[in-house]
Amino acid sequence: METHSPLERLLRGIALTLVCLFFMFPIVWIVLMSFQTNETILRVPPSVVFMPTLENYTALITGRLETAAGTLNIDFMGNLWNSLFLSTTSVAIGLLLGVPAAYAFARLKFRGSEDIAFTLLSFRFAPPLLVLLPLTIYFQQLGLANTYGGLIWVYQLIVLPLILWIVRGYFEDIPADIEYAYRIAGHDFWSTFRRIALPLAGPGIAAAGLLSFIFAWNNFVFALVLASADKQPVTVGALAFVTASGIQYGQVAAGIVLSIAPTFALALYAQRYLVEGLSLGAVKG
């Protein structure tokens, strides 16, 4: 149906531009801000014409924040590393546990399977603050407070239900006959899981991994309460930019740019695995 009139195409172009502008403008503005000093950011009226400066980035990377009140040491790169480590490990563990569980929920209907799956989903219902108080006490008693292990464990609350439910849907979409055919051809349960189910649910696993990585990366409250400075991710670390002498907008912007960069890169990379219709043509259409 490629029969659009020129007017239609024009209107569509305008609509697309408006949508792009609406969603992209804040990001573009932040990128611009990250190359400016506080003075140029705060001038009225704002302007896109300025002398770009890299001082925000150098401040972040060296960890020395120059303020009107003096030099402040912040460990932004440490925060960034924490975020990267916490999110990656959480997602890796989440996938390791969640994908086989999702397969079990999709294929092996066992007593109480629906209830267990729903319970896992229900972790997402409760407001994080509700579980935080008892969790803090437990963590202190168990010696998990302010450890990577403890944080990664709590991050499973975010990551695991997401992976489980997304990947389960993908497993359910694979026609069971394809797996039966591989079994009948003489391959055992595990090689069928590895060679048929996993590759065919690949796009779903990639999507779930990416989404849960973003959720883990953006988490704030868990890390705020359960970790102290040296274990904190960027989301919490960014609080340091609010100093006694005011807010360092340029550095905040540079911090944002640096902290969205990994997720952005991951999304671009994972895009190719998010192709749909891999199972097309397997069974009759």
Partner: peptide
């Protein structure tokens, strides 16, 4: 050996 009505070929 079994052939399925919907073919059930391995798509990948």
């Amino acid at each position: 050996g079994m052939a399925f009505q919907n073919f059930a070929l391995f798509p990948h």
